[in-house]
Amino acid sequence: MKKSSIAVALVLGSAVSTVAYAEPLTVYGQLNVSAQSSDEGEGRFSELKSNSSRFGLKGDFALDGGMTLVYQVEWAVDLADVSGGENITSRNQYVGLKGNFGEVRLGRHDTALKDAQGKIDLFSDYEADVKALWRGEVRASNSVTYYTPKFNGFGMHLTYVMEDAADAEDAFSASVYYGDENLKDSDYYAAVSMDSEVAGYDTLRLQTQVKAADFKLGAMFHSQENITTGVEQDGWLVSAAYPVGKTELKAQYQTLEDDDAVSVGVDYKAGKNTTLFAWYSSFNFDVNSPDRDYLAVGIKHKF
């Protein structure tokens, strides 16, 4: 076994063995694998894909003064075609404090702009994830994350990314949101978010999702500027989902200037934590890259 795999196994084993007499601890994860037919311009081929499969540990611990220590350590794992030392990679990993002031997290974390999309992207983790066309999907190392308390449904998420080198620059990400991103406590969600010098780009997004007559309808406007070249690009996305019994039908369209992507899919709830799915995505590029299309069927299980 690779050293990284041994280290993770030791951490998990130690954590689980002490949970009975330590602070509350949750072991969680998601296994998501699909059989996929892909055409990226050089002919069609088949492959297995591990779609951001992951596992992690999270918990909290009561402190003096009404504060709570919070932590999360999460890894991505490839169940399909990557083995050895590259099989396990880091995702959100942080420690922080929560109280009447809100919540502060120190470590590696999704930026405020990335986090603000909520559930609008119906094909997240697949080929048509918004990051396929847009910049801004950043999980920032050396970052400080702050969530304000909610007030009348409004909240803020702020990210400060330290430069980590003498010749680098600090970066910032911010989001103001309203409502419930899961559309459980309310039938609407909206957010305005921006990045400043994050991963070489300045970015602005406006996004909203509503539940109406069983439909979930989402929309996003996106604008990005390359800090080095000054090139500016705009795009937009619309998505829709509709339940039919245990099945959910979904569709999505995304653009960036003259490039676009269209996706359709169906999810079937086979159990409380298990979903069977199928989807088709097609990309049309104006220049520099051949058109692409993908067809997949798979299984997603949460634990």
Rank of each mutant, 00 (worst) to 15 (best):
V73W: 07
Y160S: 14
S14Q: 13
M220C: 08
K58Y: 04
S281A: 12
Y189K: 09
Y94V: 03
V130C: 07
G271S: 15
H301T: 15
R135N: 14
V244L: 15
V266Q: 02
V176C: 08
Y147G: 09
A219S: 10
L48F: 12
L113W: 00
S173E: 05
V244C: 08
S46K: 11
K98D: 06
E137Y: 07
A278L: 06
F303M: 06
E47V: 10
Q254D: 08
R54A: 02
H157A: 11
S14H: 10
D121H: 05
V77K: 03
G230L: 03
A219V: 15
A166Q: 11
G107L: 04
R91T: 03
A278Q: 05
Y178K: 11
S289A: 14
L256V: 10
S143W: 01
V138F: 02
S38V: 15
G66T: 03
D110Y: 02
E47L: 09
A20K: 12
V266H: 05
R54C: 00
Q72P: 03
K250A: 05
D164Q: 14
F55I: 01
V287H: 08
T89G: 09
K114I: 09
Y242A: 01
S263W: 03
D115Q: 04
L206K: 07
D259N: 15
Y189A: 07
K269D: 12
S37G: 11
K3M: 11
M220T: 13
V70T: 10
L217H: 05
N226G: 07
L113E: 02
N51S: 06
V8R: 04
V16I: 14
V262I: 13
K114G: 09
K269I: 10
E137P: 00
M67P: 06
S83D: 14
S17G: 09
Y21D: 14
A112Q: 01
Y268I: 07
V192D: 05
G99C: 02
A166Y: 09
D234Y: 08
L97P: 04
G59K: 00
K98I: 02
E248G: 06
K211G: 15
I227H: 01
Y280G: 05
K250P: 13
T145M: 11
Q209C: 08
G43M: 06
D195T: 08
A191M: 06
K49D: 12
D293S: 11
Y21V: 13
